[in-house]
Design a protein around this nucleic acid. Structure first.
Lengths: 120, 120
DNA sequence: CCGTATCCCAGGGGATACTG
DNA sequence: CAGTATCCCCTGGGATACGG
């Protein structure tokens, strides 16, 4: 048993699940892996996420040390989010998860369907 | 966007997260990876899981095709759980998640503490 | 031995409106 | 532009008791 930041886990893998579990966390990490992004860019990239949710997920990723929030003290305000070192190290695992997910649903071909998302 | 079993995902990796997210799923998979186990053995291996929770998590893993439930029609009842082919394929990923988790908490040395679990 | 059935609670997430 | 503030709902999980 492991205790980490006041939560208990039965395996260290559960900690990683916690890091990326959250409706928009993976999408955010995927976007940031292409380079730093501003808040309203993210909003346009993830049009189904509300401002509130986006902020919450970003704050969690930040406090978990996976992303870095840079505030430029200018007017109008400018905030940029980018991957931290730790966040970059996560990338290969996200890829593996993605690949396994793809393999998995291919075991159940007629239970999955794809929709292409509108983009600005 | 992907729709799979009436849920929508933004990335196939989220499907995998769903497969293993659940308080006892990883612990169960870890145990079954050592070989098939009976229900009450599992209870003793995971003493903090209630019967109800154990049953629920096992049912989910089963309906997701990761484990196989074998019922022996004898008296007293005997039920044995084992990994499916798909479940075995999951193992390397669980190992990666575990390893990254270990690496991760080592970045924050004084926020983690370890407890060895009582076993029968 | 291997489960169901009930009841209850906390927190993750949605909708909407407001602000430095 | 980049957020807070409220309010509300729903699901995952806990406690406990009962059944084939």
């Amino acid at each position: 048993m492991i205790t980490f930041r006041d939560k208990t886990y039965r395996c260290t893998s559960e900690i990683v699940l916690g890091l990326v579990s959250g409706k928009w966390k993976i999408s955010i990490l995927n976007q940031l892996s292409k380079g730093p992004v501003r808040f309203n860019q993210l909003q346009r990239l993830l049009p189904d996420a509300t401002q509130r949710m986006l902020t919450m997920q970003l704050r969690m990723l930040e406090s978990d040390g996976l992303i870095i929030r840079k505030v430029y003290p200018v007017s109008p305000p400018k905030v940029e989010y980018g991957l931290s070192e730790l966040g970059e190290q996560l990338a290969p695992m996200l890829t593996m998860l993605c690949d396994f997910g793809t393999t998995y649903i291919e075991s159940y071909p007629d239970e999955a369907s794809y929709t292409n998302q509108k983009h600005s």
